[in-house]
């Protein structure tokens, strides 16, 4: 299949065939992602515009570009750039697109990447826009499931902040393309918005909801944990109650499926006990690494380079 795309904005732009194409390409680049350097993107420059803090997304894009033989331009902090003088994002994009061959943008406002696309002369990759999309995270999540479990009709539980969590909305959409059975596990106040549940069901997805994590733990292939943010709760007591209810420890894993994997977009706070890190179920650090081959695949695609 031939697949060219200039911009990576939202998972909803992708068909399953296109996602498969990206995952396959990431597979071909995985050994290079682990070590070494090629000249696939030699002479190309990637600009990283991060208006919000990021460790994994920013550094894995840098690593991806360096492994491919390209170079990276960093906006640096907002305070050291024209942003502090009140320059609009549109103007910044117009300028930076003349300095680089592609731009990764993380921004605080939803829809920023979509707007940036309108003003850019080079490809835009959405590195997260407010509470909106984070397509490269979703793609690396899918790649993790494919590599460490199976993407054929997996039983997946997604746990935690399903209301505000930007990664889970894109992920559930993408999982529905693979016929996943999805169970949403969250407290009432952080449940998946009805609108998204409605959209998923309209597409024929198999979705369930529960507040009880233990109820689903033994019947899933993938446990996808997310962080519950303290600031969502006006009452600290309520936060502690909820945070403890959605914390997983080694003891709870006694009867889970043997090949069940645990994922987390990281950073975690205390929702996965560190005693799990060395079990056969933990995959969150591998998941973080898989961001590199996925982003390498995307960089080669948007820059129109064969591998």
């Amino acid at each position: 299949m031939e697949f060219h795309r200039n911009h990576i904005i939202s998972m909803k732009d992708f068909t399953r065939d296109e996602i498969d194409y990206i995952l396959d390409r990431a597979g071909k680049l995985e050994s290079l992602a682990r070590s070494g350097r090629s000249d696939i993107l030699s002479g190309k420059i990637l600009a990283l515009l991060f208006y919000e803090p990021s460790t994994r997304t920013r550094m894995s894009f840098e690593t991806a570009m360096l492994r491919l033989g390209g170079n990276v331009l960093n906006l640096g902090s907002k305070d050291a750039s024209s942003v502090i003088k009140g320059e609009t994002l549109a103007d910044t994009i117009r300028v930076i697109s003349t300095y680089s061959d592609a731009i990764v943008l993380r921004h605080t406002s939803e829809g920023a990447a979509q707007m940036a696309m309108e003003f850019s002369s080079v490809p835009i990759i959405n590195g997260g826009d407010g509470a909106g999309h984070h397509p490269t995270q979703t793609l690396l999540d899918l790649y993790t499931i494919k590599r460490e479990s199976s993407l054929e009709h997996p039983d997946v539980a997604i746990v935690g902040d399903l209301k505000y969590g930007r990664t889970v909305h894109s992920l559930t959409y993408a999982l529905s393309l693979y016929g996943a059975n999805i169970t949403f596990v969250s407290p009432q106040q952080l449940k998946m918005p009805d609108q998204i549940i409605g959209d998923l069901k309209a597409r024929g997805a198999h979705v369930n909801e529960t507040e009880n994590l233990d109820q689903v733990l033994n019947n899933i292939d993938v446990l996808y944990m997310t962080r519950i943010q303290k600031e969502r709760f006006p009452d600290p007591t309520e936060y502690n109650k909820v945070a403890n209810a959605y914390k997983i420890t080694n003891k709870q894993l006694a009867h889970v499926r043997q090949n069940m994997i645990i994922m987390h977009p990281l950073p975690r706070i205390n929702e996965i006990d560190s005693s799990i890190d060395n079990t056969a179920h933990a995959r969150y650090f591998q998941q973080s690494f898989y961001g590199v081959p996925i982003r390498m695949a995307l960089l080669t695609i948007v820059m129109g380079t064969d591998i």
Partner: peptide, 12 residues
Amino acid sequence: NPNCISNTNEPV
């Protein structure tokens, strides 16, 4: 959505 890019000072 108050946090939408179309509700900022961007030229859109």
